[in-house]
Amino acid sequence: MMNHDAYPDNYIRGILNGVKSIAMVGASPVNVRPSYFAFKYLAQRGYDMIPVNPGHVGKELLGKPFVASLSDIGRPVDMIDIFRNSSHIMPVVEEALALDPLPKVIWMQLGARDDVAAAKAESVGIKVVMNRCPKIEYGRLSSEISWMGVNSRTLSSKRAPAPTQGMRLSLNRMSVGGGDTAASDRAAKNKSEQS
């Protein structure tokens, strides 16, 4: 049984490194809602995101079709991220426990906590995180969130990976003066004409 008051970084790191698909229950298409922020951020970091919200079936969130419930996903998912208040957690966890195969992780958003539901999920081997945001935790452990002055509580003496594809520099830069002949080229030309 996990201590849900304080998670070791390695626990969170293991989850975020391990899961590939995330079903977000309560995902909102409204672009000032925290669920929208987190959905977009996680999608941009390569997670296979599935928006779950019965109120928006027929619509898409950043190109991904909404499904009404976890059972409608129709394929295995690694993690269920629940964007609901604490009082609405249990039914979602029960729904998750009916999935086959079971998800590996159930994650409850900032402010959401249901210890009974957590114990139920943990009893069948599911890892549980409560009262955390996966976007914030991803940003913190990667130290990306440090741009905002947030204490990542991590240290590194290694060069940070460049935010683009390594150091493969683009060739498509503006040329100065159309690449016109420079003094050294003219000197070389004069020399060859003289000889």
Binding site: S152, L155, S157, K158, A160
Partner: peptide, 10 residues
């Protein structure tokens, strides 16, 4: 000495 600082990526 270290908190917040990491060698520059570029």
């Amino acid at each position: 000495v270290h908190a917040g600082a990491q060698p520059d990526p570029t």
